[in-house]
């Protein structure tokens, strides 16, 4: 029901120019998508914060929940650059986030969500010339949450920045070469007995085919 009011859970008209699938195929992917693109994050926002707010739309009673979070990283520095992918188990959870969370604040910034056809390796990196999101290349305002001007940053922010850099850029960080992006547990894990004997299959199922590459929305948002 909802003829007389626009729905907030419609995907945007964004089309990734690196995505090779047709509009039609992409529409079909979006129609069942469990993945959200989340934009306008502060560079200091952690996955735990993202988990906390997005788990509010999780429906574990329907077999749902957050499968994984993929933090968008600066291509060069391997530090967060203000976007992320949140992958749920259910399409309805992604839609609920569009309706209830997109446009509200996380870490004191208005975040924006969009349905996404699915994460593909390589999409976790910014596409701007300097490694971050394109939108930050051209931004001429001061934005403390997205790099701002470091000399004005408060002590607490510096500490958080260091922690954020340490998370992804330091030895063992997820942004380093050879690091894997987790596949997330399968929604329908078998029983313990079966897990032991068939866990390889289980992993394969978890790493199911992702749609072809589609880039981060580097010019998303306000």
């Amino acid at each position: 029901m909802a003829h007389i009011v626009d729905r907030l859970d419609m995907p945007s008209s964004y089309k990734d120019n690196k995505n090779r699938v047709s509009r039609e195929d992409e529409r079909n992917q979006l129609a069942n998508s469990t993945t959200l693109y989340v934009g306008n994050l502060s560079f200091y926002t952690t996955e735990a914060q993202i988990y906390e707010i997005f788990s509010q739309c999780a429906e574990p009673s329907e077999g749902g929940g957050i499968k994984r979070i993929i933090m968008g990283l600066d291509r060069n520095n391997k530090t967060p650059c203000g976007f992320a992918f949140v992958e749920y188990y259910l399409h309805s959870e992604a839609l609920a986030s569009m309706r209830y969370i997109s446009g509200t604040k996380l870490d004191e910034r208005i975040i924006r969500c969009d349905l996404d056809p699915g994460y593909k390796e390589g999409r976790q990196f910014g596409r701007g010339k300097s490694g971050g999101q394109v939108r930050d290349e051209y931004r001429d305002d001061y934005d403390a949450g997205r790099g701002g001007w470091g000399h004005e940053a408060a002590q607490a922010k510096r500490r958080r920045e260091l922690a954020a850099a340490d998370t992804y850029a330091a030895e063992g960080g997820l942004g380093r070469d050879g690091a894997n992006v987790p596949v997330g547990a399968s929604a329908d894990a078998p029983t313990r007995k079966r897990a032991r004997s068939e866990d390889e299959d289980e992993d394969d199922e978890g790493a199911r085919e992702a749609p072809p590459m589609r880039g981060e929305r580097d010019d998303d948002d306000d």
Partner: peptide, 23 residues
């Protein structure tokens, strides 16, 4: 709140506000 130059525009886009306006 508008969005300025979107990527679909002939001159390319960068920055701008929300992209998620409906068709």
């Amino acid at each position: 709140r508008g969005g300025g130059r979107g990527r679909g525009a002939p001159r390319g886009g960068r920055g701008g506000f929300r992209r998620d306006f409906p068709p």
